[in-house]
Nucleic acid binder design. Structure first.
Lengths: 342, 342
DNA sequence: TTGTATGCGTTATCAG
DNA sequence: CTGATAACGCATACAA
């Protein structure tokens, strides 16, 4: 009599019922080969002892793990969080599990994580590059993986140097839309607060910003562009920036920069949005609950996650070997709140 | 000659070098049994073709996956996010991967996710109960898993009805500290904004609130306690609440409630913190960047994650079968910002 | 020093 | 209809 507690295997059932393992296997799959009697007996027994096939054994046999590896720089950023949620949603519905690894913006960690997972643990990767990787421009770890035939989907922070499926929002358009919005409200001295431009997304957003200015016959004044480190924002730097410039609007490449600098501006006595308007990126909790609430370019992270997962799983499950990659570009949308005029 | 592209196995190496599989296996483990010559030859070949053992095969053999299953209600909440980060950090350092599953506050999803993972995919669970599970009080899925000998660590949203390791912060103490802080500032009409009290944490925080009031000889007035749904906060309800009561301080059981109701109060013309002070729970981005910035009871999510991971991995790797469970209680700390007087 | 056999849990092929 | 055998990739006890 098998123990009720521990997991039961086909072998256990076979032994108890004095049949062969293969008979049990077939019976549980309701195979036509097996007689009604035997099937019922075996199925009843399996149910009673709550038999569940061992995933690992099946993975070994099928060379399919039904696991997806997700490697992202950070999980505390709302955007990545929503992407994960989207991936989870789609993947789970398809019977896949999601293994999350954080690179914490480090190249080495990204490499280690990928290697760890690439040895059979997952069927494919969904990832967004760490800032260090983008700065370094070294994508060999990605190539190694794709060359092994492991499908990869890059999202948001991508590179053109690797051939694989990609999902991005049109960041340039986002920057453009945001800037145009400000221009449309009569703003003429529009500043930009961004990161160093090795980050592909910041770069694109900056391009959109410039494009909109040029198109509106406004000068692109480099002194109106402030670059901040991702992590430690220096309040004084922002304060000086606002003081030394005449500025009537600010576009920020993320919501943290926006909310933070908005507060600095308020402290300096500026009226938002009348004197200075603000627009950020990422439609997260911060934007929603900021005071004043923040107008943002929404990136639709959850949708991005779903699409990434879908592209990956399609590739994983597709039989054909044809190497055809696509890049999906999502449209950003403006969510207007109180940090801009009406 | 094996293909440079696809994964190479022991068998491939053995065939190429015309030795047996076990010789290869031993050689790559630098076994003393194998001659220097053979070892060098095999190791060189393995390096050349970038041999990496297949995780799945090793898992099947060792009955250890080196995967941890993390089942949480939500990933958009900052608190859970930080816990994941803590888990990741510790687990990765120990060579474990983290499989994240979201219950989205649903009992059924929680059960399905656990079953999915319990069939060999993971070595143990770290989880926080969904609100539905806590409301329902049904913990059979947890018991089934522990009875199979799979270690479980519950954190934050826990239950006494399951025997396993647990990690919590002292939520009652948190509520107590927050309320005491407000009392210490001369506040007498301290309101509470909370969720329905099937959530273990809200319940405990409420107890702490009441305890502090009683201890300070202040009446516990149930009409000063407002219960809101977790998701859709009704602005009007809060407005009415503030209007109908004389209130000089508010403790909220999370940061979203706090930031949101703070804004309502501001709109109604109240001065924060002079007329109404606010304290929330969870030291997240919202609190930090809110305007005014929010005083909170910090829950130390990252630490909680690390401890959970440590407890779980200890149990997973411990040989002995003795069933001894512990509950770690972390002390909450007050992070004072501008929503309270100095 | 090397190789053979066995097993981890499952499935699939083929023989009976 | 049922069962023996091989295979997935690896590790190891035991022979040689």
């Amino acid at each position: 009599m098998p123990n009720l507690k521990s997991k039961i295997t086909l072998k256990d059932i076979a032994r108890e019922l004095e049949v062969s393992i293969s008979t049990v296997s077939k019976a549980l799959k309701n195979s036509e080969e097996i007689s009604r009697d035997t099937k019922e007996k075996i199925q009843a027994f399996a149910r009673l002892y709550n038999y569940k096939p061992n995933n690992i054994a099946i993975s070994l046999k099928n060379k399919r793990t039904k696991n997806i590896g997700v490697v992202i720089p950070d999980i505390v950023h709302h955007f990545f969080t929503t992407v994960i949620r989207g991936i989870e949603k789609y993947a789970n519905a398809k019977g896949y599990n999601v293994i999350v690894c954080l690179s914490e913006e480090s190249f080495d960690k990204e490499v280690i994580n990928m290697e760890m997972l690439a040895n059979g643990s997952i069927d494919g990767f969904i990832m967004s590059l760490s800032s260090e990787t983008q700065a370094k421009g070294d994508y060999n770890h990605l190539r190694e993986v794709t060359e092994q035939g492991i499908p990869v989907v890059l999202f948001d922070r991508i590179t053109n140097e690797v051939e694989c499926d990609k999902v991005v929002i049109d960041d340039q358009l986002g920057g453009y839309l945001a800037t145009k919005k400000l221009v449309g409200q009569g703003k003429k001295k529009i500043a930009l607060i961004t990161t160093d431009d090795y980050l592909s997304v910041s770069k694109a957003r900056t391009e959109g910003y410039k494009k909109a200015l040029l198109e509106s016959n406004l000068p692109v004044d480099e002194s109106r562009i402030l670059k901040l480190p991702t992590m430690d924002m220096d309040e004084n730097k922002i304060r000086k920036f606002f003081n030394s410039q005449e500025i009537d609007a600010v576009m920020c490449v993320n919501e943290i920069f926006a909310v933070f600098s908005m507060r600095v501006a308020l402290e300096q006595g500026f009226k938002i949005p009348e004197e200075i308007s603000f627009i950020g990126f990422t439609n997260g909790l911060l934007s929603k609950y900021a005071n004043p609430s923040l107008t943002v370019v929404a990136q639709h992270g959850e949708r991005m996650g779903e699409i990434s997962a879908q592209m990956l799983i399609d590739k994983v499950e597709s039989e054909n070997e044809e190497e055809t990659f696509q890049t999906k570009i999502l449209e950003p949308t403006l969510v207007v709140r109180d940090s801009t005029i009406n």
